[in-house]
Every structure is written in structure tokens, then in C-alpha cells.
């Protein structure tokens, strides 16, 4: 029964929350397809906000909901649930917050191989494994995912340049969720 609720509880999590609020600071026509793509990325990745620049166009998409609560009576859910993940003590600015114009350009996402908590650094005091613009080789360590005190290295599947980091340090991730984009 609990297992069933776990499965049921997980699925709606990525899409929980209000529709993303769209703030644009544009000086020319807005690329609606780009906005739609960003909004989907925001929901898929559980990020709080994404900001991009393309030419002199700048778009910022913010999601207001932070809760991951389910209401009682949801299909197959035994009880309302909340998934809580660890956050590191340090509050250093993350690369995701500074992701800019490269975000929606070409490149392949790196998916999370398991459910857990993503870390961008080996310990709260350590330097991040990678930053936006970092050149990586196939097999380089780009992230850690902790699940039940098991630490799993996430390696770059290919050589390239990190163009977007789609999770914050200490953020919960679901199976298959895009972690970063490597061009």
C-alpha cells in the first residue's frame, strides 16, 4: 500500500504547482515557441526560475509554487505526501541561477540515472565539479546524487561544453530528469 502511494505520489510531483508566471523584459517581439519550451523545461526540471538572453531579448520565467504537496483523495495515494530532500548548509550562488543565453541552444541533456538529491560539489565547502562554460571530457565527474547515503558519481556521457546546469546544489531529482546540457 505504501509502495503504491510512493509510485502514485511521485508522478504528479514534476507537474505540481501553478502554471509558470512569465516575466519578459523584451525590446522586440517575443519568441513564443522559445517561451513555451522554457516553461516546459521549468516544469520538467523543478527549477524555480530560468532566465535566458537571445540577442537583445531577455526572458525570465519564474515558478511560484515550491510545495510538493498532494491532496488527500488523489488517485491511488494513501495519504497526502511531500518529498523532502537534503540541502547543503552552504548557500553559495549556484550556476543554475547564472545560466544565461546558452540555455536553449543546441546540446544534449544528461538525465538523472536515479531518484535522489543532486550535489554540484563533493562537500559544502568544495568547489563545484563544473560550471557553465566548463569543458568536459567523456567520463569526467559532473555531479553527485545521494540516495539513502549512497553517493553516485554522475559522469559526463560525452566531451563538450556545459551550456546549462538545470538543478541547484541539494535539489531533489527524479529518475530521468535532465541535470545539465552538454553541447
Amino acid at each position: 500500500m505504501v509502495d503504491t502511494s510512493a509510485r502514485a505520489g511521485n508522478k504528479p510531483r514534476a507537474s505540481v504547482g501553478n502554471a509558470p508566471a512569465i516575466k519578459s523584459v523584451a525590446s522586440n517581439a517575443i519568441d513564443t515557441a522559445l517561451v513555451a519550451r522554457l516553461a516546459k523545461l521549468l516544469q520538467d526540471t523543478d527549477l524555480g526560475e530560468i532566465e535566458v538572453e537571445k540577442g537583445d531579448l531577455r526572458i525570465k520565467i519564474v515558478r511560484h509554487s515550491t510545495a510538493t504537496m498532494m491532496q488527500q483523495g488523489a488517485p491511488m495515494a494513501a495519504a497526502p505526501m511531500q518529498v523532502v530532500h537534503a540541502l547543503p548548509a552552504s548557500k553559495a550562488p549556484t550556476s543554475a541561477a547564472t545560466a544565461r543565453e546558452e540555455v536553449v541552444q543546441s546540446g544534449e541533456p544528461v538525465p538523472a540515472p536515479m531518484v535522489g538529491t543532486a550535489y554540484l560539489r563533493a562537500s559544502p565547502e568544495a568547489k563545484p565539479f563544473i560550471e557553465i562554460g566548463s569543458k568536459v571530457a567523456a567520463g569526467d565527474r559532473i555531479m553527485l546524487i545521494e540516495a539513502m547515503k549512497t553517493f553516485n558519481d554522475i559522469l559526463s556521457p560525452r566531451a563538450g561544453t556545459v551550456t546549462a546546469i538545470l538543478v541547484n546544489d541539494g535539489q531533489p531529482v527524479e529518475y530521468g530528469q535532465p541535470l545539465m546540457i552538454i553541447e
Binding site: 502511494s5 510512493a6 505520489g9 504537496m69 488527500q72 494513501a78 495519504a79 497526502p80 505526501m81 511531500q82 518529498v83 523532502v84 530532500h85 537534503a86 531518484v115 535522489g116 538529491t117 545521494e146 540516495a147 539513502m148 547515503k149 531533489p172
Partner: peptide
């Protein structure tokens, strides 16, 4: 379970 709400933890 706290006040009828279930919370799950994968780290801590």
C-alpha cells in the same frame, strides 16, 4: 507522518 501529511526523505 506529521499531522496526517506524509513526508519522504532520501537524504538526511
Amino acid at each position: 507522518v506529521m499531522d496526517g501529511v506524509e513526508a519522504r526523505f532520501d537524504a538526511g
